[in-house]
Write a protein that binds this DNA or RNA. Structure first.
Lengths: 344, 344
DNA sequence: TTGTACGCGTTATCAG
DNA sequence: CTGATAACGCGTACAA
């Protein structure tokens, strides 16, 4: 790998001169500038980011932690972040958190080691305390899927309870009386909050709720199929199912249909997230929209902004320009929206 | 951000000692070792990867370039790479190539700057020449979606022509006589190769092929819907459609159904890729399996392996252990497989 | 306009 | 077993 010295030698100048043409810093003789540029071009020279970041106090890189790669929900989340990064010319370091708190925290710490001063995390298993202690040490640390009071200004979250409430309210209005729940085994509060919302809707409508009609599984299609089987096998009576996400809803529908149950005529099925797929599976999913792309974008903006502020405060902002990072209206709590289609 | 010096000072030792307990290199007095560990723990110290990689000649990081984030095909690809990385404790630096050759190449070059000695690329728009010239400078550069003769040992590719042939052959056997094609506007050879395969199947079956029944669009659901509309509007006659990928197939089916055309009774629709979604849309997709996850994994292994070999050759392999990177049977060309479901 | 010298955080070598 | 000291590749005051 070529270094700045190699270029300097080849061009017959000093390293500093090469550095100058690289950064357009102080004026360089046009002649030598062109010569150096030519050599760099010929040799395909690319400055070593690590060395640069060592003197610059960090390269422009944002770390992203998602629980897994294959879930389209997280792809959408990443896409939201990526959009912001393009604007602010920031690179993405993507890490997969995996299943245990240990791996999840390791992923975050690795990002820190990589000098990602901005980090956006969808934390599935880590505890609030663990995340708080990380946040205290990392100014640009932002959570995208939970609300932790102590670090509320570093959280972007969805009103999950309202989501559950919306779903159940809608179903009750459709005259559905026995709402089953298919929840996920994610180690986070989301499922519980949504269930609380479902209960609240029942209370508001003065309809009793059968608490035993609940099945828990992995938050994907297979999990949904499995959960539906459990529900059927345990002889639960239900005319509607509220699912943790769209993928589970699809699995539930599939299992129901395989058992000769018509959706939505006999049983309504509601998804959650409103992934693109919700609009083109059959029947098209009635679901609760989770604006994850916007939320992720906002989280990225927030993280970048916090870092910027921190560096300015520390006196690092020598480059002058504030790099166009804007947090906008800085709304950090998002509201879910009911999307009515065909499945319920 | 704390440095090794801070820890050294706090522990009352020299940085070398701290470095030693960090890397378990030479033996350190158990007492001081524990002390240093304690200080590191308390302070939440994380060694700066950039500084490490500066002395170590590169951190263990693999760069990945995909054209876009939202396509599940690329999520699957990333998942394949991620699996290998977990095994070899390598980090992933993900970059989105975007729409132009310029941005695509920029993405690769940034990865190089980040000292990713291993890079796996799905190149959508860059030219063969550009990629070859990069490959010549980057030992761990591997392409995952094309075959370029000059750098064949750095390519992992699918037999696209055979894929097209399989699709058409199957349809012809179903007694379909007029096969339309929905291709993508990807700037790569894939679509053309598959079309060539379709033609070959016609020749083999001695059936004439209507070359004008072809529509081109973006390789996603919207593109598929649009392409189908074009096909219908231009009054093409067809009883089968071969699509560039599953998403387009889903769009095509949707448009056909909206126009009162039954799938597969009146028109068969074939996808390509066999993404998970192909198995649970309605009708379930008959498609051609593109083993992208395995291919991506193989590409990652290959890239890591090439780097390893290069470094050994350069005399860098001081750590001794060969880190468990294995290329396995090193098959780099993959064969597509017909998957029959309901849409055709 | 250009070159010299030092520092960024870490590891490795060599004395002690 | 431990501590100086020299790299690693680059940016940048400072001097020339």
């Amino acid at each position: 790998m070529l270094t700045i010295r190699d270029i300097a030698t080849l061009a017959g100048v000093s390293r500093s001169t090469v550095s100058r043409v690289l950064n357009n810093s102080t004026s360089v003789n046009e002649e030598t500038r062109l010569l150096v540029k030519k050599v760099m071009e010929e040799q395909g020279y690319r400055p070593n980011v690590h060395a640069q970041s060592l003197t610059n106090k960090g390269a422009k890189t944002i770390g992203v932690v998602i629980p897994e790669m294959l879930d389209p929900f997280f792809a959408t989340m990443s896409a939201g972040i990526e959009k912001i990064c393009q604007q602010s010319k920031t690179h993405i370091l993507l890490a997969v958190g995996g299943k245990t708190a240990e791996t999840e925290l390791a992923a975050i710490h690795n990002l820190v080691r990589q000098q990602c001063d901005a980090v956006v995390v969808h934390a599935k298993v880590a505890s609030d305390e663990q995340l708080v202690s990380i946040a205290e040490r990392l100014p640009g640390f932002v959570l995208v899927n939970r609300y932790i009071k102590k670090i509320a200004s570093r959280c972007v979250w969805l009103n999950n309870k309202e989501g559950g409430r919306l779903a159940a309210e809608y179903l009750l209005k459709q005259n559905k009386k026995a709402i089953a729940i298919v929840a996920s085994n994610f180690g986070i509060a989301d499922p519980q909050q949504r269930i609380a919302g479902v209960k609240q809707a029942h209370i508001e409508a003065s309809v009793p709720h059968n608490e035993s009609a609940i099945a828990i599984a992995h938050p994907n299609r297979e999990g949904g199929a499995l959960a539906a089987q459990k529900l059927l096998l345990t002889g639960q009576c239900f005319d509607a199912v509220v699912c943790y996400n769209d993928l589970m809803a699809i699995g539930v529908i599939q299992t129901l249909q395989e058992n000769g149950i018509k959706v939505p005529e006999q049983v309504s099925v509601m998804g959650f997230d409103d992934l693109p797929i919700a609009a083109y599976c059959t029947p098209r999913l009635t679901t609760i929209r989770y604006p994850i792309e916007q939320m992720a974008a906002q989280a990225a903006r927030l993280a970048l902004f916090k870092v910027q502020g921190f560096k300015a405060q520390e006196g690092f902002n020598k480059t002058g320009a504030s790099d166009g990072v804007q947090v906008g209206e800085s709304r950090q709590d998002y509201q879910p929206v009911l999307v009515v289609r065909e499945s319920g």
